[in-house]
Design a protein around this nucleic acid. Structure first.
Lengths: 134, 134
DNA sequence: CGGAATCCGAGACGATACTG
DNA sequence: CAGTATCGTCTCGGATTCCG
């Protein structure tokens, strides 16, 4: 589906053939991490500051560490999904905004999110049943 | 979005509050791994055997280890996305088939997959630009 | 406030070998 | 064929500390 994944990494023995590093990902894979999708959805309503994102993520995803948030945002900026704007004030103020590309991801994302919401209970039940059986 | 994620793990210090294990995931999170989504798409055309899946995955995803494939399939079975059927023959023959639930995931998945295909190049360019800048 | 740097444990994942 | 078992490495990602 994406051959960027099979490109090996120089120094790593385990990577003799395969094993992608997060940075090698493209497209669908970018959504594969915990956070990118959520950030898209949060920013779809408009620009948000770093701290706003952080607290929003705390509210309905159990929280994200500063490190992960920064890392996620940087990765998304790199992929052209959002732009970062640093107003050089004090106290500091950094805002994140979706690019058109990032925004275009919203719809597809919602279909999956929607599926997830609708079948969350089905899955929970299936899981309970499976775990209960011999 | 899903509070199953914040349930801590008994023995792990890092899990004082957070850090999901793959097994705690629900819904959207299940797609978050490399393979589940791909398996859904492969099985959407019909029942497949273990080895068939494995070689299909080798063909357009750089290959999956037996361990990971088994692990993925078991997880998906647990979530009620597919069923496993072991014909007790020799040589052995184990078939995997999507459940209606698993099949229902196909459409949402395709919309994302489609987005990915359409914007792969945009992303690659954005990335190149970002990496080239100071 | 919005990070960067460092440390470190847990677990994801591949490789290999063995089994029914 | 379809796994299981064991092992080892590498990465993820939280905690903590420091900075402008």
């Amino acid at each position: 589906m994406d051959d960027a994944r099979i490109r090996p990494r120089p120094g790593s023995p385990g990577a003799a053939r395969g094993h992608a590093t997060r940075d090698d990902r493209v497209g669908m894979d970018r959504l594969a991490d915990q956070w990118s999708g959520l950030v898209i959805l949060l920013l779809a309503d408009g620009t948000r500051r770093y701290a706003e994102l952080r607290s929003a993520l705390r509210e309905f995803a159990g929280g994200i560490s500063e490190k992960m948030l920064t890392q996620t945002l940087r990765g998304m900026e790199r992929d052209g999904l959002l732009t970062r704007r640093d107003h050089q004030t004090y106290p500091r103020r950094v805002e994140y905004t979706l690019t058109p590309l990032g925004l275009s991801l919203r719809e597809p994302l919602l279909t999956v999110c929607d599926w997830s919401a609708r079948h969350r209970e089905d899955i929970r039940r299936a899981r309970a049943r499976y775990d209960a059986s011999p």
